[in-house]
């Protein structure tokens, strides 16, 4: 029977085949990649590291065909970068290189620089989520976590499903509220604030009512009634083992280096040097390998089909 199942299974796989090699790996491996990627972008606070990471994440998004969305996120991040670079110095007065003072507020080069790095790291996380959404489908997500906690998984899935709905709904609500005279773009700041609060309230009530029906539909179909099976059986293949065999130790090494301060630039109290030591370059190479995991798989696939096959 084991053989039998494997032969009849490929229906879903055939489709995912057409996109990325990475998607054919076991969901646990994919999930590991995303956890490590996000952690790296937060740990290695160094402009060179961050810029290289950003470039690689864009490449991964590109091969995952998130094209249009990616452009939108990048467009938005320009504003975000500017915003954080302005906001951080205003609230954070640490640092020694004072650029400007006004009315008791000190603007330091350190805080501007730190804001810049925070913004970069945030953009990397956002871009990572683009390919994450594409690669880790709800079925895979369910496979990963429904056994650990069915309730929490249900909650997460409903929440994730609501993000796109939220946006379109918010548009409709703001139009309707505008017509009944509650506007968020007009009047003094108190009126505007009130308008926003009202709108959020309507949005939350509506979404909550709908979420209840989703939960009903799930439990009506037996979700949470005991042990689950999985339509797609995700075996741990040799490929998964080989992948983890280099990926996990490398991750360990990189984080160990980070804990020793390698790949993290000193900002406070005074800006350190941007240049990397030889070990620094080595760790950067490690991070590059970690980030390009999906790209490496893709490149290998390309090589196999184009050069090695004959």
């Amino acid at each position: 029977m084991g053989m039998d199942t494997r032969q009849r299974r490929p229906r879903v796989e055939r489709v995912s085949r057409s996109t990325l090699v990475f998607e054919q790996l076991n969901p646990w491996v994919m999930f590991t990649y995303y956890v490590v990627t996000i952690a790296c972008s937060m740990v290695f606070l160094h402009p060179i590291f961050l810029l290289v990471e950003l470039l690689l994440v864009i490449c991964v998004d590109f091969v995952a065909h998130t094209g249009k969305q990616m452009l939108m996120v990048l467009e938005g991040s320009l504003f975000m970068t500017a915003f954080i670079m302005i906001l951080n110095p205003l609230v954070n007065n640490r640092g020694t290189h004072v650029i400007w003072t006004f009315g008791g507020t000190i603007i330091t080069a350190e805080s501007i620089f730190y804001g810049f790095m925070m913004a970069l790291s945030l953009i990397i996380v956002l871009l990572t989520f683009l390919s994450y959404n594409k690669v880790l489908t709800s079925q895979k997500f369910m496979y990963l976590f429904s056994r650990i906690s069915p309730k929490l998984t249900l909650l997460t899935m409903i929440t994730l499903r609501f993000v796109p709905l939220f946006i379109s709904r918010l548009k409709n609500i703001s139009q309707a509220q505008k017509i009944r005279g509650i506007a968020v773009t007009k009047g003094n700041s108190r009126q505007r604030g009130l308008g926003v609060v009202k709108m959020m309230q309507v949005l939350l009530i509506q979404s909550f009512t709908d979420a209840l029906q989703t939960a009903d539909s799930m439990s009506a179909r037996g979700y949470g009634s005991g042990k689950r099976s999985s339509y797609q059986r995700y075996r741990f293949s040799t490929r998964d083992f080989v992948s983890l065999a280099w990926y996990l130790p490398l991750t360990g090494l990189c984080f160990y280096a980070a804990s020793r301060g390698i790949g993290r630039m000193t900002v406070y109290p005074s800006l350190g040097t941007i240049a990397l030591t030889p070990t620094g370059w080595l760790v950067l190479l490690g991070v590059v390998l970690l980030f390009s995991f999906p790209l490496i798989l893709e490149a290998w696939e390309w090589l196999w089909w184009n050069l090695l096959r004959s």
């Binding site: 299974r9 979700y223 005991g226 099976s229």
Partner: peptide, 9 residues
């Protein structure tokens, strides 16, 4: 079907 633990095949 997954919810009621039906085997893959």
């Amino acid at each position: 079907l997954e919810n009621i633990n039906v085997p893959t095949d």
